[in-house]
Structures are given as structure tokens and as C-alpha cells.
Amino acid sequence: MSKRNYEIVHQGSRAVIVTGFACLMLVLLLSGNILLYIAPHLILYAWLAVIFLVAAAGFQSYLFIAAVKGSAVDCACDGDHGHDRAPQLYSVRRSVFVFVLFAIPLLLGTLLPNSALAGSLAQNKGMNLGALPTGRGAAGADLVEVDGNQDPALKQLFKTDVYNRDYAKLGMLLYGQDVIEMKDEWFIEKQQALNLFADSFKGKTIRITGFVYREEGLSDSQFIVGRMAMTHCIADISPYGFIVDSPDAAQYADDTWITVTGTIDQTDYHGQKVVKIVIGSAEPASPAKIPYVYPDWNFASKL
């Protein structure tokens, strides 16, 4: 291949890749499907990436056109195209290799449908039932009440160590509700609060929507209703859920979405004490388009 042809292929393939990524991200951002890949707080950064990509696509196209016209762009400092050397075979091969490598995610992202991952991935990740860390509370030292002017008896119920005061506040808020609704907001935080103060919540009514999931160690009359939590991107999602006790558990198929209403109780699971739900009623539910929940580091300030 002549040097000029190599230059055209090299610059052209780069222009295609950069433009491709710009388009892929733009389409995902505009359709909202980007939330199937990254968490909402990264969307701003994704737009930043689009700006960079569009600028790069423009510049790279200019380099490509210059290559086609045969005029070298001098100060691009493209240390790669060996100014005075005839291009050797391997640099062509290298260009092709890089092009193919970058084309794989582009093609996969464009051709395959965007889909949400639920139970199928939970199997690999291990369900998180909110069991308390081992060793916690053994010291039992320095339990404190939360500040504020709530009922002293209620404060007594939600006594905890200083680090869990935020959960105590959330717990007191939940305690006052007739039905504890496990919605998208604060799913993980509420699960933590319920497990921390499981004794106080015993017998309370709870309603939760999520996917059905099973793993080893559950009895025949049990299944798990869970949600997937994402911190940054799909690579770090992990499932959070509750064990549900139901006499006709077998009728709920894995990966289907249901809404369960029931009462809170406690159970032993793999040697850990966790909250469970004794089923009252259940109905099929449709999965949310973006089925993920997100940890909220700052929930306490919004209470």
C-alpha cells in the first residue's frame, strides 16, 4: 500500500470510530437509554464526553479530507505516520487491528437491543439481604438517641450508635407510616434501616415491587423479591432484596416482577438474622423501564 493510501485508510478509520462513538452516546443520551448503562449522576460527564467526541470527530474528518487531497497536515504531530519512512506492513495491520477492536463495542452497542439486567445477573453477584456486619454491636457501647423533639418512647425504640443515627431517623420516619413502601428512592437505605431495627418493625405492613429471585438455602415456601442497585455502571451493580414467606411460593416464576404486600418478620438465613416479609397479597407488576435503584450517600440531609 502506498504511503498516501495508508494515510487515507488510517485517518478515515479513526474518523469513523470517533464519529461512531459520538453518535452512539448521543442516541443513548437523547433516548434516555443511557440509564441502562450508567448511573444518573454520570450523565453530565457523558455529555462532556459527547462534546469531546464531536470535536475529535470534526478534527479527525479534517485530517481525513486532507489525506484524501494529499496535503499533509503538518502540526498534527501524528507521531504515528512515520514522516519520511515508507509505511511498513505492520502499521497497516496495526491500524486495522485498532479499528476492529474499537468497532466491536460500537457494533454490539448499535446492533443488540438495550436491555435491563435483573435476575439473570443476580445469580452471579450474590443477593444482599441487609444482614448486619459480623462483629457489629457486640460491644454494645454508647448507644445514643437521635436529636429532635419526637416522642421519647419512639426515640427509645431507635437507639443506636452514633454512626447509625441517620438510619435511626429514617427508621422513625418509616415507623410512622401505615404502609412502608419500598420505592425506587432510598431502597437500600430503607432496607438497612429495617434490618438495623428489625425488632421494632416486627408486624408492620410493607409493600415492595421487584423481581423474583431464588438461590440455594431458601425453603420451598420462600423466594426473594429484589432490586438491582447501581453505583456507577453495570460493572458494579449488586442485587438487594427481602426474603418473602409464602405458602404458594412455587407459583411465582423467577425474573417476573411482582408487588408484594405483607408484614415484617425476622428469619435466620445462612447464619445471619435478616428481615423477611410474610406475604399478605401479591399481584403481577410491570418492570420499570429503568429498573435500577441508586444508593443515596446523602439521604439523611433530605429527611
Binding site: F21, M25, L28, I34, L36, Y37, I38, L42, Y45, A46, L48, A49, F52, L53, P105, L108, G109, L112, N114, S115, L117, S120, L121, N124, H232, C233, I234, A235
Partner: peptide, 27 residues
């Protein structure tokens, strides 16, 4: 193959990591 959940998992994780990395790589 297209419908296989494992292909979906692979594709989603793969594309997700690249999308997430993209802004920071450009910075």
C-alpha cells in the same frame, strides 16, 4: 445467540464500562 441472556450481560457490561470511562479518558 442473540436472545441468550449471557450475550446480553456481556454486551451490557462491556459497553457500560466503555461509556463510563469515556469522559474520564478524554479529560
Amino acid at each position: 445467540i442473540i436472545a441468550d441472556p449471557r450475550l446480553q450481560i456481556f454486551k451490557t457490561v462491556f459497553v457500560s464500562i466503555i461509556l463510563e470511562t469515556m469522559p474520564f479518558l478524554w479529560i
